[in-house]
């Protein structure tokens, strides 16, 4: 599992996993190792993460941005100074 779940994982089905011999793994992302290759992919045009974010809000509109984000009206919001 990657990323921090936004919902609390309650009642983790350990017994079910045990019965099915499932493996569960989780961990920090190795960001430092991936930044350069990902920047290369973006520069090559194979990734365009910008498209999943809204922009145009200023830093002092952060409160409004958090409201929008909390209401799931935007996936990501980029704040500019």
């Amino acid at each position: 599992m990657v990323g921090v779940p936004s919902a609390v994982i309650g009642d983790f089905p350990y017994m079910k996993m045990w019965l099915k011999s499932l493996t569960f793994r989780a961990g920090w992302c190795n960001v430092q190792a991936y930044m350069r290759p990902l920047l290369d992919l973006i520069a090559a045009g194979r990734l365009s993460p910008r498209r999943s974010s809204a922009t145009g809000l200023k830093l002092d509109q952060a409160e409004e941005a958090y409201r929008i984000f909390d209401a799931r009206e935007a996936t990501k919001i980029v704040l500019t100074p």
């Binding site: 990657v2 990323g3 992302c29 190795n30 960001v31 991936y34 930044m35 990902l38 990734l47």
Partner: peptide, 10 residues
Amino acid sequence: VGDILATGFL
């Protein structure tokens, strides 16, 4: 790149 894209890439 500094967080969620790298995390997705992970």
